[in-house]
């Protein structure tokens, strides 16, 4: 009697275990990042108590804000097996555009901010159109627009720079203003990251991005409108980079044509460290945001620890390789466990 009832009940039990293990893995990455952050902050504070002073923390939060915004957009795109190498150039174009609208055309602040964001959306739409309609591979298309958009900023700026004095006080105040000790810019980034995170986790079209990244063929056969979803992801990535550009202008006050130059690799690094698979289909915005935060904290902690600033890049590089190697080990283990589970059932 007991032997006959066991097999049917065993299967769901095993499935339960299975989802639990998955959840454990997902948690493991987040846990690892949080742990790394905590250890880094604890050690740095022990050696240099000023690291946790209000100003230093605010600097980190401000610097992380822009990275988190761009990393959120990058996550959406990388989930679909794509990549957006043009984010740094889009940020530069939007930052310079916003600053110019404010200083030269003396537009109202909200209008200039809106235009800056729209510049980003347009750039994203160009990327999306090249990739979906034009059939250009994402790496090639966004490498091309990396040059193209940067070239446009150079043309527009013509070697000039816009300094804080040219911009209205209210805009610059917005860059440094705080609410309950939190800088506004950080708050904006956090809200946007949460919005993207909820969208990806809870909304059908958000889940479609995972499906497109896991298996583009299967996603198409399942009736997912690939063109529209991909277009949406690139426009969103562009919009968030555009918003990042506005925040950049507000925070630094001084904008020239090279704003955000070379940023793309830092953002990809943050996303990869945050556990988003470079070939799509898996990862979360939360992880990517933690990755961005970790890289920013490393940047700021090194001088406090008295470590030569020159080590920063090397450490980031080692971290990226460590993160993907870890992903591979976990993937191999899960695959082995899954094989074991299935052979057991049969």
């Amino acid at each position: 009697m007991t032997t006959t009832t066991r097999p049917p009940s065993a299967a769901p039990e095993r499935q339960d275990q299975w989802t639990q293990r998955l959840r454990g893995l997902f948690g493991a990455r987040i846990l690892g990042l949080v742990l790394a952050l905590a250890i880094l902050i604890a050690v740095t504070t022990l050696l240099n108590p000023r690291f946790l002073s209000g100003q230093s923390v605010r600097d980190i939060l401000l610097a992380a804000a822009i990275s988190v915004l761009l990393a959120s957009g990058m996550t959406m795109v990388i989930l679909t097996r794509g990549i957006d190498l043009s984010v740094g150039s889009v940020l530069g174009l939007s930052a310079f555009g916003t600053a110019t609208f404010l200083s030269e055309y003396e537009l109202a602040v909200p209008l200039a901010v809106l235009l800056g964001v729209v510049i980003g959306s347009l750039c994203g739409a160009i990327n999306g159109a090249l990739i979906t309609v034009g059939g250009v591979p994402p790496l090639v298309a966004t490498l091309g627009t990396l040059y193209l958009f940067r070239g446009i900023v150079y043309f527009w700026a013509g070697g000039s720079r816009i300094s804080a004095g040219d911009m209205p006080r209210s805009f610059l105040d917005f860059g440094t203003a705080r609410i309950l000790g939190f800088p506004y810019l950080t708050l904006i980034a956090v809200v946007m990251a949460i919005a993207v995170g909820v969208y990806l986790a809870r909304y059908r079209s958000g889940r479609d991005l995972y499906a497109l990244g896991s298996s583009p063929e299967a996603a198409r056969l399942a009736g997912i409108p690939a063109t529209r979803r991909l277009m949406g992801a690139y426009i969103m990535a562009g919009t968030l980079s555009g918003l990042g550009g506005v925040l950049y202008a507000a925070r630094y006050g001084t904008v020239d044509a090279s704003a955000g130059n070379g940023l793309e690799l830092d953002i990809v690094a943050a996303v990869v460290v945050g556990g988003v698979a470079i070939f799509g289909g898996s990862g979360t915005v939360f992880g990517a945001a933690l990755g961005a935060l970790l890289l920013t904290v490393i940047n700021n902690a090194l001088p406090s620890l008295g470590i030569d600033q020159f080590w920063q890049r090397a450490i980031v590089g080692a971290l990226i390789i460590g993160a993907i190697a870890l992903d591979r080990i976990v993937a191999v283990r899960t695959a082995a466990a899954a094989r074991k589970a299935t052979t057991h059932v049969h």
């Binding site: 990549i83 790496l139 690799l265 990809v268 690094a269 990869v272 470079i278 070939f279 030569d308 020159f310 080590w311 920063q312 890049r313 090397a314 450490i315 980031v316 590089g317 080692a318 971290l319 990226i320 390789i321 993907i324 190697a325 591979r328």
Partner: peptide, 23 residues
């Protein structure tokens, strides 16, 4: 040998090698 994606690995070594050259 380890089978990691080339794009991610070489972005990592891009940062690593440039960092070491500064070191």
């Amino acid at each position: 040998v380890l089978g990691l994606p080339a794009l991610a690995v070489t972005i990592g070594t891009l940062a690593l090698y440039r960092g070491l050259s500064y070191v």
